[in-house]
Amino acid sequence: MRIVHVIASIDPKFGGPQAVAQRIAAAQSALGHDVHVVSYGSADAQRKLFEMGRGIPNFSDIKWHILPEPDLFEKLACPGGRKLLRTVAQSASFLHLHGVWDPILLYAANTAKAFQVPYCLCTSGMLDSWSMQQKSWKKQIAFLLGYRRMLNQAKFLHALNVDEVLLMQPLGLRAPAVIIPNGIFPKEFDALPDKGRFRRQIGLPEGRRYVLFLSRLHIKKGLDILARAFQLVSYSHPDVDLVVAGPPDGAEEEFAQLVKEFGLESRVHVVGPIYGETKISALVDAACFCLPSRQEGFSIAITEALACATPVVITDACHFPEVGASEAGFIVSTDPAAVALGLIAMLDNPVMGKSMGVNGRRLVMENFTWPAIAELTIQNYRFAT
């Protein structure tokens, strides 16, 4: 099949959807398909993309069609994007769109319809109740301007979990939802680095443990919740620090203010975005991983933490019930006290944490791998056509 993935930006700073698009594309290429990606990206974003891609199996087999970072006119009207889409999509077997609210996706759907090419759309949690409440008036206008039609005319909506399907139901969309989860490439996690590498890199003394947060510094990721939770943890666990890794995305100032207010400046290490081997080393060294999100589709960061045999403390809004069912970590509410209790329980029992880590690695390796997920996408493309 000739498969075309479309996403508004390939910049890694935007998190999960970018990682998903490139990994599904690579896994589909490994199955022998002709896979293309259409997107925008600055020279720096492209450099980061291809640096990170060196560690992804079959990444080099993807055909990339990347336009420069768009100005406002290009972002809204997409003249360059539409021209590129007409060239790439006209002989495609299937289009896979990633995201919801970007104009380039609306034009991609229209292009697919013009060429009678079927398409699906990965909603990435953007249509659940929490997400729809954010700037809701803009989204209602967007629905009137063609985005509802784009969703309704998709062959299927690529949902990441059962909760996402249920949370989309109030919108009354006509396209069926198909659950296709995220995953990992086992090859990326076969040989984990020795413990201590990341600790030395950030200058953390031997004997100090840390809780790791790894995600965009966005309000929905719950950094304010984590700051309040870690304040409680800090009283009973003076040997534990907090490491916050990820690109800035609007929540960093409030987080820094809370850290200062709580007197935790020496205990909290904000290290910026980390990728590749550095990211895996950070996960391996962590006493536990924590993502206290207000909303998630299917977190790549959680999945990678589990693959590194690192136990996790996550919220029920992460929609990852398999973590609890497989005893790979704790699932708590978004209340800071509940997050703190989960972290304290994990930190108080390292033996239990190690066992949970083993369970989590098994869970991911047996159920959430990109080669199997790619097969699932192909099956659904064929079924839809």
Rank of each mutant, 00 (worst) to 15 (best):
N349H: 06
G41S: 09
E366R: 02
P248V: 08
F262I: 04
L173K: 05
M52L: 13
R23A: 11
G250N: 00
Y210H: 06
L160N: 11
K75P: 06
L226N: 05
P248K: 04
N380G: 05
D239T: 13
L283I: 11
I104T: 03
R149L: 06
D71L: 06
I331K: 09
L84W: 00
F14V: 10
A77M: 12
A256H: 03
D224Y: 01
L343Y: 10
N380A: 08
C120W: 10
L173F: 10
I62S: 00
I302T: 15
A325P: 02
A317Y: 10
S281Y: 05
V211N: 10
D285F: 03
P181C: 15
S29T: 00
M126N: 10
L49H: 09
P186W: 00
G172K: 01
V100N: 08
R23D: 06
V259S: 02
I184V: 15
N380R: 14
D241E: 15
I219R: 06
C288Q: 13
I66F: 11
A374K: 09
H5M: 03
A43C: 07
C120K: 11
N182G: 14
S129T: 15
W64G: 12
Q22T: 15
S326M: 06
Y210M: 09
A372F: 03
F185Y: 08
T377V: 15
G32L: 03
A282C: 11
F330H: 12
M352N: 08
E164C: 13
I202F: 14
P68I: 14
V271L: 06
D61W: 00
P292H: 13
Y107W: 08
L31T: 08
V37K: 04
S299M: 13
V233D: 05
N110E: 12
C318G: 11
I179V: 15
G80H: 15
A340S: 15
L204G: 03
V313C: 12
L376A: 15
D34Y: 00
E74D: 10
L67S: 09
V259F: 00
F230C: 04
I378P: 05
K83Q: 12
P181Y: 03
F383S: 14
L204V: 05
K135S: 00
P273K: 11
M365Q: 02
A114T: 02
W137Y: 14
